[in-house]
Amino acid sequence: MKGVHFLISTLAILASATFLVSASDPSSLQDFCVALNDTKSAAVNVDNLLGLNTLGLSLARIDFAPNGLNPPHTHPRATEILVVLEGTLCWFRHIQREWFVFPIGLIHFQLNVGKVNAVAFAGLSSQNPGVITIAKAVFGSQPPINPDVLAKAFQVDDNVVDYLQKQFGTTTISKIQQ
């Protein structure tokens, strides 16, 4: 009889312990979904589609003219998958007609290498993926990066750095004292 009580007690403890330690992601199901009325916006994230809140994703449609460029950039909080629906896009030296995956933090770009328009959809693994455009971050930073540092880093003349900083509206700062 003691063995039966021990077995029942053990099973009860295990059952309650399993219940207490059971864990999973919170449900992404919500009671409502807010529709997006502004069809002009190509990027869909939690800021303009509240129904994405807690789902951990964002979507974007990108239309490229021939030779159109989505400049080098990175997403600090998301991995991106880009599906090419029409046209031919290139990133780095790879030309692809179907899809790309850009891991979180990887600097990437897309260039339409075709003679016709290209259309792509991007899905990002965050409701707030962020975007850092590299040229703007480097040449348009506030406060500006010292021109001597940029000239040495990119191995270009000071005048090139000056020109690029002016393109981004950066006020140049004094050179490093020799």
Rank of each mutant, 00 (worst) to 15 (best):
V46G: 11
V83Y: 03
P143D: 00
G51E: 08
A122C: 13
S41Q: 15
C90W: 01
A17K: 03
A151H: 03
A78V: 03
Q177H: 05
E98Q: 13
W99G: 07
H108F: 12
A135S: 09
I145F: 06
P66K: 11
G3H: 04
A35E: 10
N70S: 15
L57P: 09
L69D: 08
L29W: 02
L106F: 09
S27V: 09
N37S: 10
P147R: 03
Q142C: 02
V4P: 00
L111W: 08
T170K: 06
A17S: 10
I173Q: 00
V160F: 06
T39C: 03
F64H: 10
I13K: 01
N70T: 13
V46W: 07
I8E: 06
L164Q: 04
R77I: 02
H108W: 05
L14K: 05
L89M: 03
W91F: 08
C90E: 13
A17F: 07
N112E: 06
I107L: 07
K40P: 00
P72H: 10
N37F: 10
Q165L: 08
A23R: 13
L36K: 14
L7P: 00
M1E: 09
F139M: 04
L52F: 15
A17M: 12
K152D: 06
L124A: 15
P129A: 13
Q165M: 11
F109T: 09
S27E: 07
F109L: 12
P76V: 07
I81M: 09
I13E: 04
I176Y: 02
Q96W: 02
S27T: 14
I132P: 00
L52C: 11
G130E: 14
S126M: 09
P26K: 08
L55D: 05
H75V: 05
Q110V: 07
D38F: 12
V101Y: 03
Q167E: 12
I134A: 05
S126I: 13
N112P: 05
S22T: 13
K2M: 10
Q177N: 06
A122D: 09
S22H: 12
F92K: 12
T171W: 01
A15S: 14
K152V: 06
A120T: 11
T171M: 09
Q96Y: 01
N112Q: 07
G51A: 14
N117R: 14
L52A: 11
P147C: 05
D148V: 04
G3I: 10
V44L: 15
P143R: 01
P26I: 03
T10W: 01
S24H: 13
A78T: 04
A42I: 13
L7H: 07
I107T: 14
G68R: 08
A15K: 10
G123S: 15
T170L: 04
I95H: 03
V46I: 15
G56C: 12
T170G: 05
D25M: 07
V34L: 07
S126K: 14
A135H: 00
A135R: 03
E86T: 05
I95C: 07
Q165T: 09
G3M: 03
A151E: 01
